[in-house]
Design a protein around this nucleic acid. Sequence first.
DNA 1: ACCGACCTAATGTGTGTTCAGTAGGTTGGG
DNA 2: CCCAACCTACTGAACACACATTAGGTCGGT
Lengths: 199, 199
Amino acid sequence: MQRAYDTLLAKGEDRRELILSAAQRLLARNGWRSTSLAQIARAAGITPAGLLHHFQSKDQLLHAVLDARDADDDARADRSGDPIEQIRGLYLRFEKSPDLVGMFAVLLIENLEPDAPLHDRLLVRHRAAIDTIEAGIRRGQHAGRYRMDVNPAVKAVEIVAFLNGMETSWLLDRSLPIAEIFEDFTQSLEQQLMPTSTT
Amino acid sequence: MQRAYDTLLAKGEDRRELILSAAQRLLARNGWRSTSLAQIARAAGITPAGLLHHFQSKDQLLHAVLDARDADDDARADRSGDPIEQIRGLYLRFEKSPDLVGMFAVLLIENLEPDAPLHDRLLVRHRAAIDTIEAGIRRGQHAGRYRMDVNPAVKAVEIVAFLNGMETSWLLDRSLPIAEIFEDFTQSLEQQLMPTSTT
DNA sequence: ACCGACCTAATGTGTGTTCAGTAGGTTGGG
DNA sequence: CCCAACCTACTGAACACACATTAGGTCGGT
């Protein structure tokens, strides 16, 4: 029962992932609304109807893409490290997988309205990002590494805003020196969070 | 000739501006692609065909909206003041005309692709925003108010990224304490730009 | 009479989705 | 070993719908 139709199922799984990655790539650049099923299907070497054999609807495909991305992010997440160091390393993603950079930012903009299909999901994710950074700052304060006169909640919002905005800016203009910008930003963060150097 | 049909033309001008402001509002929230002519027309108390009597096409309406917005921004711009003070006052827009906040950010995302209809226009505008801030920082350095060991170009990119990202965050979650966040951000900027206080 | 401000109705195009069918591999019974 | 039943993957054509845009007409003011 379980092992029936092994090779067929394997082939289907391959195509499924092909569709998923094609959808991811197109989504991150054009957004959801202006990406048609035909476009994704063509990128995956299939017809629109064939695509809907693997995913019941365009909506379900969208959620599948997000699920995959969430799983990926969770696997990569490091909730105990120093937030400054995490941010410093973030720019590596820009060079390593530039195809995926900004997908979150693009989808966010498309789902601002409270009744947009992804609004709630993205709002939760957005708040989770802020909370994670906030918790990191609090941890640093508790450990005595960070100054106490910094409001972690406020600073966390600023950081997330910068990160999202930076993704957008870079997508628009890839000639920006992101390495330098990220380095400068993290140094500024250190200056704000670390005790005044009276070493 | 010029003065003929005065009241009719006046009525037309009124409706034209009604359409423009309705389009602005809808655009800032839903973006361009997912805002239909019918939607804008309904908001302006007119039919889609009636709307196209005032604007030749949807594209032309889009550009008219942007023209109006650019003119408004230019009139409000202050290219000689202290950039930090300008940014500090920016949050007033969030409370004064929340309907318009984020229009630029939304359109940006929809036109990331180099061949998107508004790509070039928005890229120019984005760079102009960066340049303005960069020039402001340089001016402060020249006047001896700001430290010299800050790279104005890099810092300007960071600031613009934060501002754009902040608009997005606020559009998604209007419960954010923007006044507090903007105040904290500008104070951090002062800390970075001003000489270490050995007053 | 003329003109601007509209409306109704129609057209064409793009889109998500459905439906019926085909090709080819798998399974189990004789 | 073979055959019928069955499965998965997929195609082609058709459907319903939303959309921007056009054509032709109405109405009221000048």
